[in-house]
Design a protein around this nucleic acid. Structure first.
Lengths: 119, 119
DNA sequence: GCTATAGGAAACCAATTGGTTTCCTTTACT
DNA sequence: AGTAAAGGAAACCAATTGGTTTCCTATAGC
């Protein structure tokens, strides 16, 4: 069984597919943003969204399958809450590219400096 | 005209949709990873990928439309290179959630500490 | 016990995806 | 000039998406 650290480092491609796909819809990102301010029922998520409850329900399921939210079923209510772990995986995935753009910006800075110094 | 800082902070939903969707395919993430080690032609991207050149060409276009790569056409060759800016937008988008999971882990740490102290 | 509420299941739809194949254009090499 | 290489365009295909509507189940409240 892989530890959570291993899970974050070995890029489980299928998992990342699911996470990025889940994030590729603004409605779903909106749901995540809402949940970052505390748990909510499915109907509470649906209320502000100008969409059918069922549409929101499907979005919730997509997020759940990407492990971005988890739901606790209490009575007839489904209480959804944010699960940030996959976002940490995204953060980790971003790692090398962070170095890349730091390099790019560094190179740009050096270029500008050279221009200023040389001219 | 929005500055690059504004562009990074105002979440252009359609743009983010495109970026996350572009990232939601492992082939495309593979292309990005390849390009993080330097520019490449479309055929060089297609060579290792066990897919038609056309399929790769389409993936390249998706990445290009998400502004994740840019291509310089020189003669008959299309030289593709990584454009990390949208990844910085992803990084920025991640910001608040980073605080969230820091809080969660912080809370967990406190809980464990209390357990250890109280027991 | 009856009614209202929270939510999923299933069927359906148009649009998009990821992939292919076949053909075409443009540039390079000899 | 003639051929090989780089790559896009178009047509096509099966599978998936995002959305709807209609119906169904289970819990809660009077």
């Amino acid at each position: 069984m892989p530890s959570s650290a291993e899970r974050a480092l070995l890029p489980d491609s299928a998992g990342m597919d699911r996470v990025f796909h889940a994030l590729s819809d603004r409605t779903r990102r909106g749901i995540l943003e809402r949940l970052s301010r505390g748990p909510a029922l499915v109907s509470e998520l649906a209320a502000p969204v100008q969409l059918t409850r069922m549409a929101v329900s499907k979005h919730v399921r997509v997020l759940e399958e990407a492990r971005l939210i988890c739901r606790e079923i209490v009575g007839r209510e489904h209480r959804c809450s944010l699960a940030a772990e996959p976002l940490q995986e995204v953060d980790a995935w971003l790692g090398p590219y962070r170095e890349f753009w730091a390099g790019t910006l560094g190179a740009l800075a050096r270029f500008v400096e050279e221009e200023a110094g040389g001219a």
